[in-house]
Amino acid sequence: MIGDKIKNLRKLQRISLRSLAEKSGISKSTLSDVENDKSSPTINTLEKIADALGVPLDYLTRKSAKALIEDKLEELSMTFEELSNKTKIPIIFFDKLDDIIPDEGDYERIQIIAPTLNIEPKILLNALYRQEPPIYEGSMSSSEEDFGIVKEETGKYSSSRNEFKTAEEAVQYILKENSIAAYGGYDINKMTDDEIIEFANELLRQIELISYKYKK
């Protein structure tokens, strides 16, 4: 599938195999083997090809939000135009989806698209989240300092990745957040330990995004 995707993109952009080899710094024979699925490319090789074609690496590995949507559309024999009509989301959103730095509105659109295509929303949301730029790059403060309040209250998330490791820690955090409890819609008693941990860690990630959006 990766080979076909590379070949289709190259032909769509009217780039010869020789030109792609020159732009990517990968030999023509290696590219030919990749396109014809005669070899399994390394991540480093795929990154070079993706850069040369002007697409994200996730697009080639079929993990980007747009790639996941494309694959589901193919499965349903549906076009982007039909999806646009059903969701009332402009077609340009889908055209530019791989290139955007997502904002709140983009996440809202993804949550409309997911059920329309019968895709678990968190799958598309996580794919879109990976398009966010590194949050701490160039920051004068560390993630531990920026999350000092959260750590002081819970005392137990991993300082290296800002995440909970056990269900007990996750439950304590969820129950202490009154604003989260007020929304309801979930029952911790019916959730598995893994779901509780995932829920709490997703809350942390969302707080992180919001905090940096309004940080002066």
Rank of each mutant, 00 (worst) to 15 (best):
Q111H: 08
P102D: 04
E195W: 07
E108L: 14
Y173E: 06
A167I: 04
E202S: 11
K7M: 14
I180D: 07
Y129T: 00
G3W: 07
R161V: 05
N118M: 02
D95G: 02
E195Q: 14
E120F: 01
L73H: 02
A181Y: 13
M1D: 08
R109C: 10
T45H: 11
S40T: 06
M1Q: 07
I119L: 05
A65P: 01
Q13G: 04
R161Y: 08
M140Q: 11
E163D: 08
A200S: 11
E74Q: 15
G3I: 10
Y157T: 02
S77V: 07
F147N: 11
L12Q: 11
I69T: 05
A181S: 15
E208V: 05
E195T: 01
S179G: 04
Q13W: 06
I6V: 15
V34W: 03
E208D: 14
E163A: 08
M191C: 03
P134M: 06
S77Y: 06
A50E: 05
D33K: 15
K96G: 01
A170S: 14
I197T: 05
I110V: 14
I100Y: 01
S158K: 12
M78L: 12
N44Q: 14
I113W: 05
L128S: 01
D103Q: 12
S19V: 11
I89P: 03
S32L: 09
I188N: 08
S40Y: 08
G138Q: 13
F147Q: 05
Y59C: 05
E168M: 03
R18D: 14
P121G: 03
L128D: 00
I6Y: 04
L83C: 07
T87A: 06
K88D: 14
Q111T: 13
E35A: 15
Y136F: 15
I210W: 10
A114C: 04
K213P: 00
Y183H: 15
L17Y: 04
S27Y: 03
E168I: 04
L73Y: 03
Y186T: 08
I197V: 13
Q172H: 13
Y212M: 05
P134R: 05
N118G: 00
I135L: 12
Y107L: 15
M191K: 05
E108C: 07
T166I: 07
M191E: 10
L125A: 06
